[in-house]
């Protein structure tokens, strides 16, 4: 693959990981993790592992995001007791 494009993807990968770790809002963290997963899938495909990239895109960017959103909406930031 074109190495400039891969460099851009790597930079965005690191940025999304740092934002997902440092941000205060949990919903933003979930979206950032979804972006991380999708960029990871692009890198897997670029490295030639198409099956791994397919699984990563479907599971990491699709189903896991939905499940994390459900978890975030079922918890509250401050405890009540």
């Amino acid at each position: 693959m074109i190495w400039e494009l891969e460099l851009v993807i790597y930079i965005f990968l690191a940025l999304s990981a740092i934002v997902a770790l440092e941000v205060k809002d949990l919903l933003v963290a979930v979206v950032m993790m979804t972006i991380f997963s999708f960029l990871m899938a692009l890198l897997f495909v670029a490295m030639g592992a198409i099956d791994v990239g397919f699984t990563e895109a479907v599971i990491g960017a699709g189903v896991t995001g939905i499940l994390f959103v459900v978890v975030v909406y079922q918890t509250s930031r401050k405890s009540k007791d």
Partner: peptide
Amino acid sequence: SPGGGFQGGAL
């Protein structure tokens, strides 16, 4: 081809 039961089921 790439894919299979698990990926299709997840879709």
